[in-house]
């Protein structure tokens, strides 16, 4: 595939991301996040990183967004809550925008300046990837696994202490 399609898809992802962080409604923000992640997956496929593209679709656009959907169901989406959210955003966007603008300028010049000649994107071999992850990078893979276990235990702990209190509230 080509760099051109990858750039187009990544531009779409950036546009969806900018729209996502400026929405008042959490559902709209979540749908735009999903669009951004799907466009990123398309960019990965265009760069011949097929394994990364499949994982992006399965884990990011599938599992992570599904978890978000369960939480978004609990959010207050009434008109008064939306108006409050819009008011908060309108009063608070200037300083972050200035900060981001000032820090993005040197980075754009730094990345955009150097000349790198490009051939066609090269395909990454999945077999090689497995050998890398469980050979040379074995310790890093173990660390990621440990981090995921720590996350799982933390979520289990937080979720368990929520249960009895919710039941008490139901009895009241």
């Amino acid at each position: 595939m080509s760099w051109g399609f990858a750039i187009w898809a990544a531009t779409l992802a950036l546009a969806a991301a900018v729209l996502s962080v400026t929405r008042a409604s959490a559902v709209h923000a979540l749908l735009l996040l999903l669009a951004s992640l799907l466009a990123l997956g398309a960019a990965f496929f265009a760069m011949s990183a097929n394994f990364a593209g499949v994982i992006q679709l399965l884990i990011y656009a599938g599992a992570v967004v599904a978890v978000f959907v369960f939480v978004v169901m609990t959010v207050d989406a009434s008109e008064t809550a939306m108006a409050h959210e819009r008011k908060l955003l309108r009063s608070a966007w200037r300083w972050p925008a200035l900060f981001v603008g000032l820090s993005v300028i040197p980075i754009l010049f730094g990345i955009g300046g150097g000349a790198m000649d490009a051939g066609a994107p090269a395909a990454a071999d999945t077999r090689e990837l497995g050998l890398l992850l469980f050979g040379d990078w074995g310790v890093a893979t173990e660390l990621v696994a440990l981090m995921l276990i720590a996350g799982m235990i933390g979520v289990r702990h937080l979720g368990r202490s929520l249960g009895p209190r919710l039941r008490e509230r139901g009895r009241e």
Partner: peptide, 14 residues
């Protein structure tokens, strides 16, 4: 600007 430059700028933008 080569394709890699543009993609890195887009990733910084994200």
């Amino acid at each position: 600007m080569t394709p890699l430059n543009i993609l890195l700028v887009l990733s910084a933008g994200l």
